[in-house]
Deep mutational scan, measured.
Amino acid sequence: VSFKITLTSDPRLPYKVLSVPESTPFTAVLKFAAEEFKVPAATSAIITNDGIGINPAQTAGNVFLKHGSELRII
């Protein structure tokens, strides 16, 4: 599955597209996205474009099915 993750704390709204296997734990996606944007993973969260928080204790495939591919990291 592929996710387009936007960094909301930067006024330029940079984004990265990450492709991972469906079975990947979403905690790993969060950690990798945080490292890519050089923000601390421990204090970061991934939310939907509607501002709904995503529980990272599920697979990337589940997140994709529930929330789609466009996400934000805060």
Rank of each mutant, 00 (worst) to 15 (best):
V1G: 07
V1T: 04
V1H: 00
F3D: 00
F3E: 00
K4T: 10
K4S: 08
I5L: 14
L7F: 13
L7G: 12
T8I: 03
S9Y: 07
P11F: 02
L13S: 13
P14H: 07
K16E: 08
K16T: 14
K16A: 12
K16V: 14
V17Q: 15
L18K: 06
S19M: 09
S19P: 06
V20N: 01
V20P: 00
V20S: 02
V20Y: 15
V20C: 10
V20K: 01
V20Q: 02
P21T: 13
P21N: 13
S23P: 13
S23T: 10
S23M: 13
S23H: 11
S23D: 13
S23L: 12
S23A: 10
P25Y: 13
F26P: 02
F26V: 14
F26E: 00
A28P: 01
A28D: 14
A28N: 15
V29I: 12
V29R: 00
L30V: 14
K31H: 13
F32L: 15
A33R: 00
A33E: 00
A33L: 04
A33P: 00
A33C: 13
A34S: 10
A34I: 10
A34W: 14
A34Q: 09
A34N: 09
E35W: 04
E36V: 06
E36C: 07
E36A: 07
F37Y: 04
F37K: 01
K38F: 07
K38E: 10
K38G: 12
V39E: 07
V39P: 01
V39C: 06
P40H: 05
A42V: 05
A42I: 04
A42C: 04
T43K: 11
T43M: 13
T43F: 05
T43V: 05
T43W: 03
S44I: 15
S44L: 15
A45I: 03
A45H: 13
I46Y: 01
I46C: 06
I46T: 02
I46H: 02
I47P: 01
I47W: 08
T48M: 03
N49G: 08
N49R: 12
N49C: 04
D50C: 07
D50Q: 08
D50W: 03
G51L: 03
G51Q: 05
G51N: 10
I52R: 12
I52D: 10
G53K: 15
G53Q: 15
I54Y: 01
I54W: 00
I54N: 01
N55F: 08
N55I: 07
N55Q: 11
N55S: 10
P56A: 11
P56D: 14
P56G: 15
A57C: 09
A57F: 07
A57R: 13
A57S: 13
Q58C: 09
T59I: 10
T59P: 04
T59E: 10
T59L: 13
T59W: 03
A60C: 13
A60F: 00
A60S: 09
G61I: 11
G61N: 10
N62I: 07
V63W: 01
F64L: 11
F64A: 02
L65S: 13
K66N: 11
K66D: 12
K66L: 11
H67S: 10
H67K: 05
G68I: 00
S69K: 11
S69E: 11
S69F: 14
E70G: 12
L71T: 01
L71W: 00
I73C: 03
